[in-house]
Every structure is written in structure tokens, then in C-alpha cells.
Amino acid sequence: MNSTAATRPNGLALFILPSALLFALFFFLPIGLMAVMSVLTGNPVVMPKVAFTTRHYVRMIGDPFYLEVIWTTVRIGLVTTLVALAIGYPLAHWMARIKSRTGHALLLMAVLAPMLTGIVVRTFAWMTLLSDKGVVNETLMSLGLISQPLKLMYTETGIVVGLVHIYVPFMVLTLTGVIGRIDERLEQAAENLGASPLRAFLEVTLPLSLPGILAGSLLVFALAISAYVTPILLGGFQIMTLPILIYQQISANFNVGFAAALGIVLLVISLLLVVAYNRALGLVSGQRELQ
């Protein structure tokens, strides 16, 4: 904190006031309320006599069902992230290194185009593809590759497919920025010193793009564990995830306190990841701080 700036606020400081207010109103207030609700016995607006309690958290930890839901959510998030990374990295590398401008524009459009359609629409499209009588199963059966339809809908696999489709662009865009900033001549220098193109990639480009890998993964993971529409439509309530559970607690059980506690768990998982991300980044790119 700079004391002169604090005592003599200049005009420019006023410009951040609206965004600061917005941030406080729509970010800290809801999260703060949620945190408070998660430790109260009831909704203070409708029930004036509420007390402090930890019972929502105790219930969560004591019941294997809820732990299972948390683990399922995290598992779906992890698999989605890994698949999005596996698909997104080569694409991002291609996009960052493509010489032709038209090629770059086409790739960018291909990556962005799905984002122009709503999530619901895209998820319905996957339903027509993945259902027992859907395009995938019909095609495989008519080719004689399978006799029974594969169970694709209402499984975690189906949810992951839908989520990957939605979140791959985030991975690609994050990675493209980072890979694009890596000087191509570094790879050439490695090849010049005797590294095969693959080795040069593993020794130079991959480690230098780790910040992008971490950032993209964090983004996709956080989005995937908080996704609601896709897990409902492609999981058909057969697969229970945290966001679905939270919605049920509020709309069906009217248990706002427990819903808030579940929301806090979701938030803590994301926050832990952000902390881990910063740690990891500090380790892999120690040279940044040394500069």
C-alpha cells in the first residue's frame, strides 16, 4: 500500500469503483452469504430464530452417498480435463505454429464455432448421437461391429463426451496463447544439437508450455465440476454430481443450508486447485521470479 496514494486519491482511482462495487456485489456477497448459510440451522429470512450449526458438514462426511457424489464429480472433472488436454494440445500447437493466415483463421473458426451454439442445443445433439437408437449405435450395428447397442447415454462416458466438446475450446485458446509465445528457434536449436523433432518437442516446447497446460486444465476442471446441464441431460439423473445434488436440495428438499455446504465444498475443491496451480507454476518456471 502506498500511503500517498491512499491519502490523496487521484481521479483515476474512481474509475475502478464501479467494477469494485460489481465485484463485491456479485462475487463476494453471494459467496459470503453461501458460507454463512452453510453453518446456520435454517433460512434467517423466513425463520428469525436460527442458530449456528455444523450439522450440514457432519451429514456430508458421515454419509458415503455424499462422498461418492463428490468423488464422481471430481472424477468426471479429471477425465474431462485429461481428454480435453489430449485433444486440445495438438490442436493448439498446430494453430500456434501454422504459417498460413487463412489456415489460422479456419482453425480458429473451427474451434470457436461450437461456442456460438448454446450448451443445451449441443447437448441435445449429443443425445441423438449417443442414445441406444442413436447415430453411433445404429452405424456400428449396421456395420456388424456390435450386436447390442453400446451403453453410451446415461453413463459417465456420455457426460465426459459432452463436457469435452463444450470445454475443449477453452483449453485450445489458453494453450495457443502460451505455445505461440515460445520461440520456434528454440526447437530448431534443439534439433541442431541433435534432438529428433519429437525429442526437441519433449525437451523444449512441452516444458515451456507447462504454464498453459496448467492454466487450461484448471479452467476446464473448474468448469466441468460445476457443469449442470450436460450431466443432467446426458446422465439422466442416473449419475449424480454435486451441481445436480445442490439443485435438488434447493428445489425439491428446500434445504438451503445443506445446498450451501455442498456449494462450499465445490468452491474449496476449485480453490485448492488454484493454490496447487500456483505452487506448480513456481516450481516449473522458477526462472520467472529470478528475473
Binding site: D183, R185, L186, Q188, A189, A190, N192, L193, E203, V204, P207, L208, V284, S285, Q287
Partner: peptide
Amino acid sequence: GMVFQNYALFPH
């Protein structure tokens, strides 16, 4: 052996 104009040293 090659010495690049910007040296192309591996920063990591």
C-alpha cells in the same frame, strides 16, 4: 553447430 541471432538459449 549453430549460433542464432537471438541466441535461442533454452530459458528453462
